[in-house]
Simulated scan of single mutants.
Amino acid sequence: MYFYRQAQATVLDALPRLQRLKIATKRPDDYFAEMAKSDQQMQKIREKMLSKKISMEKSEKAKQLRTL
């Protein structure tokens, strides 16, 4: 907790200094970070998430039908 509070106090001290020196502390709106994974890997992840979502929805529908 001491480390957290020390870091927080430092940030609260540093931000006004950086603003006074006109140094940007926020990313521009059009900033795009370099991705750690390739687009192909991300597409596979999206497909898996979509298939899980669809299977969960089917499972929920089946449960609802059984209760009726």
Rank of each mutant, 00 (worst) to 15 (best):
D30E: 09
F3G: 03
D30K: 11
A9C: 06
F32C: 09
K26E: 12
M35L: 10
M49R: 15
Y2H: 13
T25W: 08
M42K: 05
S55M: 07
Q6H: 07
R27C: 00
M42Y: 02
A9R: 15
K37P: 02
I45Q: 10
F32S: 12
K52H: 13
R46T: 11
K63L: 15
A33M: 01
Q43N: 12
E47M: 06
A36W: 06
Q8H: 07
Y31N: 00
Q64K: 03
Y2D: 12
A14K: 06
K53S: 14
L21Q: 14
R20N: 14
T10A: 11
K44W: 06
K44N: 13
L15R: 14
A14C: 08
E57I: 15
M42N: 01
A33S: 02
D29K: 13
S59I: 00
D30F: 10
S38H: 03
A24N: 06
R17K: 15
P28C: 04
K22A: 04
L65W: 03
K26L: 12
L21S: 10
K52I: 13
S51N: 08
R66H: 05
Q41D: 11
Q8W: 03
K61M: 13
T10P: 02
Q8T: 06
Q6W: 15
L18K: 04
M42V: 09
F32N: 11
L68F: 09
T10E: 02
K63P: 06
F3W: 07
K58V: 13
Q43L: 04
Q19N: 10
E60A: 15
S55G: 02
K58E: 07
T25P: 08
M49P: 02
K26P: 00
A7N: 03
Q64E: 05
E60D: 14
T10I: 08
K22M: 01
P28F: 03
Q41I: 01
L12K: 12
R46F: 10
P28E: 12
M1F: 06
A9M: 08
K22V: 00
F32K: 15
M35T: 05
A14E: 03
K37H: 07
I23W: 12
Y4E: 14
R66N: 09
A9I: 00
M42F: 00
D30I: 01
L15F: 08
A33Y: 03
A7T: 08
Q64P: 00
K53T: 14
T67L: 09
E34Q: 12
R20M: 12
I54Q: 15
K63S: 11
K53Y: 15
K48T: 05
Q40C: 01
S55N: 15
